[in-house]
């Protein structure tokens, strides 16, 4: 079954400059291939050229300047198994990565590809949002670093006509930070109908800082800033979790689609936010 009927050429560039040059010269008719899952499952008929990143040495996970730096072609499996991720935020990030899709697809999906494609149901995007990740883009010569919020706030598809996502940077958090994420899926390997990620900083039972994101809403993931403000400065208790459910249901920006009504998605967002907070109380 030839899905990519119009593809005429494949490129394996040896440098970022070469890759960006091909991308730019193709005027929208070239696709960057990380793992290649997206392009084969959702073929775009106008694509005539494929640019593979395999020779660009972007398959690394390293620590630098108190950050974990993840190369764009690192797969979910690579990241899940990395020693740097093993104890990151008490191992919760590793756990979540191991729940995404199936083992076979985790072996193929790349972190850079997930960010660059910007699919609404991605589990990686809300994860990186909640962790306040930074996206590194290259135009072949210079790097540009954007907070994930800014990357999606700007027209990221326009940005990626001339640039390539090369790295994702995650801040290292001290022990006062706690992280949790929940995905609503019909079965273990399905794409989520909602995902909620929450990072909080707790000192003497008071929430000093919070970062919340929701994805599969059904639009692209976003940061629930009102929810963050609601939590900040409050004592973490069961009562707060109950109040947070109510607040989330009233204020969260989620919609409906054929798979889930808006009312139900709002309710789920509230319940999941509460449950994550309750789990984080016990950390």
């Amino acid at each position: 079954m030839l899905k990519l009927k119009n593809v005429r050429q494949c490129f394996m560039p040896d440098s970022l400059q070469e890759a960006v040059d091909i991308l730019r010269d193709s005027q929208g008719k070239a696709a960057i291939v990380g793992g290649g899952l997206d392009i084969t499952v959702f073929p775009r008929p106008y694509i005539e050229k494929l640019i593979f990143l395999d020779k660009l040495h972007l398959n690394y996970i390293k620590e630098k300047n108190s950050e974990i730096r993840v190369g764009a072609t690192v797969t979910i499996t690579d990241m899940e198994r990395s020693l740097l991720i093993k104890n990151y935020l008490r191992g919760r990030v590793k756990e979540i990565l191991g729940e995404v899709a199936s083992q076979l697809l985790r072996n193929q999906i790349t972190i850079g590809g997930s960010i660059a494609r910007g699919h609404p149901y991605s589990d990686i995007i809300p994860l990186v949002y909640a962790l306040r990740g930074r996206i590194v883009l290259s135009d072949g010569k210079d790097d540009e670093e954007l907070l994930i919020d800014d990357f999606y706030r700007e027209n990221f598809r326009e940005l990626l006509k001339n640039k390539i996502v090369t790295e994702i940077r995650l801040k290292k958090y001290d022990d006062s930070y706690r992280f949790g994420m929940k995905r609503f899926v019909r079965n273990a390997t399905d794409i989520p109908l909602l995902n909620v990620a929450l990072l909080i900083k707790v000192e003497k039972n008071i929430i000093k800082d919070a970062s919340i994101s929701l994805g599969s809403r059904p639009g692209i993931a976003y940061r629930f800033i009102k929810g963050e403000e609601f939590l900040k400065g409050k004592k973490i208790t069961k009562e707060l979790a109950e109040d947070f459910q109510e607040f989330t249901e009233e204020n969260v920006d989620v919609g409906g689609d054929a798979r889930l009504s808006k009312t139900y998605r709002k309710h789920l967002a509230g319940v999941y936010s509460k449950n994550i907070l309750l789990n984080l109380m016990e950390v």
């Binding site: 079954m1 899952l37 697809l105």
Partner: peptide, 23 residues
């Protein structure tokens, strides 16, 4: 042809992949 069933699994350099979604 969507990577969801795993019937087409092969090992690529020892790692399992769905060959229906790998170019």
């Amino acid at each position: 042809y969507m990577g969801t069933c795993g019937a087409c699994t092969v090992l690529i350099d020892g790692v399992p992949h769905t060959s229906c979604t790998i170019l």
